[in-house]
Design a protein around this nucleic acid. Structure first.
Lengths: 152, 152
DNA sequence: TATTGTTATACTCTATAACTATA
DNA sequence: TATAGTTATAGAGTATAACAATA
């Protein structure tokens, strides 16, 4: 008995979407324990690794539209995990800085995330995970190439 | 100059999400030409391959919650691409049947989808695409295993 | 009692136009 | 005039409770 979605399983987009939806759903459960979502976790990761970046730069790094990023930073600021500092030489901009509480929460959440990561790729060799990452990279590049071809 | 999101790029979930978001966005552009979305295209694909399935069975095959599936079927029915037929021996249920218009639209959309698929995996060998699908399958199974472990 | 399809509702992510205060 | 952050808004996908008709 073939799976009913057999006619769709030749499509990379369909496979990616099905798997990714499950992964992100579970990842959000992992982060919920720390009152984080994958978006706030990712923001915290970048702000800790590169302190003082402008809000817009962090949004760009995460491919999140600036308007959508405002409430993410709001949420992190209200939780006391980072602060909006005035940016040097530009009164329009904010530099994002993680608080010590933010760093501590992130450390713990990162351990949970890494444990989840291990459970996720269980049964795959390092080479197979590398091949997966590489294939995803190729696909992303193919999309970028098409975009520039069409002049978008 | 390392990418600002370098600290996240070791996470499978992050990589999957970034790539999948781009792929599905572009795929929806492909389908928009036929007044379809990836959800309505997928529904049509299953209904054409397996005519007469109940609405709930199709939703289940696509991992779409039944309430969310209602408007997808509504949309396809209003566009004249499928019909809700009374199911045999069960007056509660509907059997979904594609119209000839639905089959024709799907054929054309499928050609566009396959062309998109080719552009997506350009530069990857068949073995590499197989390895990608296999890795996604392993990840999905790992998630399912965890779920049953926790008795959810 | 349980199930099929449905309604209503809510939350997350994504996307765009337009505003404000600076540059 | 352009840019940084913001507000408002809208659409898609996802999730759950509760209902009517039927099993």
């Amino acid at each position: 008995m073939a799976a009913l979605d057999a006619p769709l399983r030749a499509m990379t987009g369909y496979r990616l979407r099905r798997t990714t939806t499950s992964v992100m759903s579970r990842l959000n459960c992992v982060f919920a324990e720390f009152d984080l979502r994958h978006t706030t976790y990712a923001t915290l990761a970048i702000v800790i690794e590169s302190p003082g970046l402008r809000q817009g730069k962090v949004a760009e790094a995460l491919a999140i539209e600036r308007p959508n990023f405002v409430q993410i930073v709001d949420e992190l600021e209200e939780a006391g995990l980072l602060t909006r500092e005035p940016a040097l030489h530009d009164k329009r901009a904010y530099a994002l800085i993680a608080t010590s509480k933010g760093k501590a929460v992130f450390q713990t959440a990162a351990r949970a995330a890494h444990a989840f990561e291990e459970s996720l790729v269980k049964g795959l060799s390092e080479a197979q995970v590398s091949a997966l990452f590489s294939a995803l990279e190729t696909i992303s590049e193919n999309l970028d190439d098409q975009e520039t071809e069409n002049g978008q």
